[in-house]
Amino acid sequence: MIDSVFWRRALAACVLAWGAAAHSALPQAAQQDVQRRLDCYGAANPSACEITLADSGTPFGRVHRGSALLLGVEVDAATRARAMEDLRSAAAEGYTPAYESLAVFLRRGAGRSESLQWRWLAAEHGHAAAAKHLGGSIDFDGTDRQSAADRMFLSWVHCHPASFDSDGPVMSELNTARKASPGADLAQVIAQVHAKRLNEAKAKAENFLHGCVPGAYYLASLPPDDQAWVRKTVRARMAQTLKNIQAAVRKFPDLELLTLPEYQDLLPPP
C-alpha cells in the first residue's frame, strides 16, 4: 500500500527541488526553430511553411518537413521517399519525436512490423502517446508476468508527468499564449506555458503515484513472487526511460518544451 502522506511530501520535494525557474531558456538556435514553427500558424499555406523548417538542418525541422510532406494532398513515391529520409535521419540522431512519426507513417501495409518497432523505441524513450497506443496492443490474460510488466510499464510512461507530450498540442498551446500576449517575446511565452503545464501536472503526478504505480489491474492474478518481479522490472525500465528523456533534452534542447524537468526524478521507492 502506498503511504499518501509520504508521496505527497515526496512529490512536493521533487517539484520544489527544481522550481518553476528551473525551466531554462532555450538556446538561440532552438528558439529560432520554435519561432519559425509558430509563424507557420499564420502563414497562407501552413503545410508549405512547415516544409521550409528543414532549412535549419535540425531534427526538429526535418521531422516537421517529413510529416508535412506525407500529409500532403498528393504524395507520390519521390515525395514519400524524401519525407521518410527526413524522418529516418532525425531518428538516427536519436530525436525521440521522429521515432513516433515513423511509427505513425509506417503503420499500414508492409511497414506495420517496422512501425511497431519504432513505437516501442518511442515509448522506451518517454513518448507518452506511443506508450498509450502500444498499451492496448499487447495480449494479456492476467497470468503472464512478462505481458503484465510490458503493459504496466507502458501505463507508467503514459501516466508520468515527465514523459514527452506530442509536439502538436504543445505548439498549439504556445501559439494561443503568444496571441494572448502580443507584446511578450518567445522566452516569456514559453515560461507562461510551462508554468501552466506545471500547475496542471500536479493532478497527473498524483494519478501516476496512486493510479498507475500500484498497477492493481496487471498484478491481481499473479502470484506474489511474480508481482514482486513485475514491480522491480517496471521500476527499472521507467528509471531508464527517465534517463533517456534527460539525455534527449541535453542533446536536443527544443525537447524541453515537451517534458517537465521538475518531475524527471519521480519514481516509487525500490
Rank of each mutant, 00 (worst) to 15 (best):
residue 71 L to A: 10
residue 265 D to Y: 14
residue 39 D to H: 05
residue 164 F to I: 05
residue 259 T to Q: 15
residue 3 D to C: 07
residue 39 D to A: 09
residue 248 A to K: 04
residue 100 E to I: 00
residue 160 H to W: 06
residue 6 F to A: 06
residue 143 T to L: 10
residue 16 L to C: 12
residue 54 A to N: 05
residue 197 R to L: 12
residue 87 L to Q: 04
residue 170 V to E: 12
residue 210 H to T: 13
residue 155 S to V: 04
residue 192 Q to N: 03
residue 259 T to G: 15
residue 34 V to R: 09
residue 157 V to T: 01
residue 200 E to G: 13
residue 18 W to G: 12
residue 19 G to H: 05
residue 58 T to S: 07
residue 179 K to S: 03
residue 116 L to C: 07
residue 259 T to W: 10
residue 248 A to P: 09
residue 13 A to D: 08
residue 237 R to W: 01
residue 229 W to S: 00
residue 55 D to I: 14
residue 24 S to L: 15
residue 109 G to N: 04
residue 182 P to M: 00
residue 149 A to Q: 01
residue 92 A to L: 02
residue 96 T to F: 00
residue 229 W to G: 00
residue 114 E to D: 07
residue 225 D to A: 10
residue 81 A to T: 01
residue 264 Q to R: 14
residue 38 L to F: 02
residue 129 A to V: 02
residue 10 A to Q: 12
residue 13 A to C: 10
residue 58 T to V: 10
residue 223 P to K: 14
residue 40 C to M: 03
residue 261 P to R: 09
residue 43 A to C: 09
residue 157 V to P: 11
residue 267 L to K: 02
residue 149 A to V: 05
residue 105 F to T: 00
residue 228 A to P: 04
residue 239 A to I: 01
residue 133 H to A: 07
residue 247 A to R: 04
residue 149 A to F: 07
residue 242 L to E: 08
residue 93 E to M: 04
residue 29 A to R: 10
residue 152 M to W: 15
residue 63 V to N: 05
residue 38 L to R: 11
residue 29 A to K: 09
residue 47 S to F: 08
residue 246 Q to C: 08
residue 24 S to A: 05
residue 159 C to R: 02
residue 40 C to T: 01
residue 2 I to H: 06
residue 90 A to S: 03
residue 30 A to L: 14
residue 61 G to I: 06
residue 189 V to D: 00
residue 79 T to Q: 01
residue 127 H to N: 10
residue 36 R to G: 15
residue 224 P to N: 10
residue 255 L to W: 05
residue 12 A to T: 09
residue 190 I to D: 01
residue 6 F to Y: 15
residue 5 V to S: 15
residue 109 G to W: 07
residue 159 C to P: 12
residue 159 C to T: 03
residue 86 D to E: 06
residue 176 T to M: 12
residue 238 M to T: 02
residue 117 Q to C: 15
residue 117 Q to E: 15
residue 216 A to C: 11
residue 151 R to Y: 14
residue 37 R to D: 11
residue 117 Q to P: 12
residue 15 V to T: 15
residue 218 Y to E: 11
residue 106 L to A: 01
residue 214 P to F: 06
residue 84 M to E: 09
residue 182 P to Q: 06
residue 122 A to V: 14
residue 157 V to S: 14
residue 66 G to K: 01
residue 119 R to Q: 12
residue 51 I to S: 10
residue 22 A to N: 10
residue 262 E to W: 11
residue 217 Y to N: 13
residue 91 A to V: 08
residue 70 L to D: 05
residue 73 V to E: 15
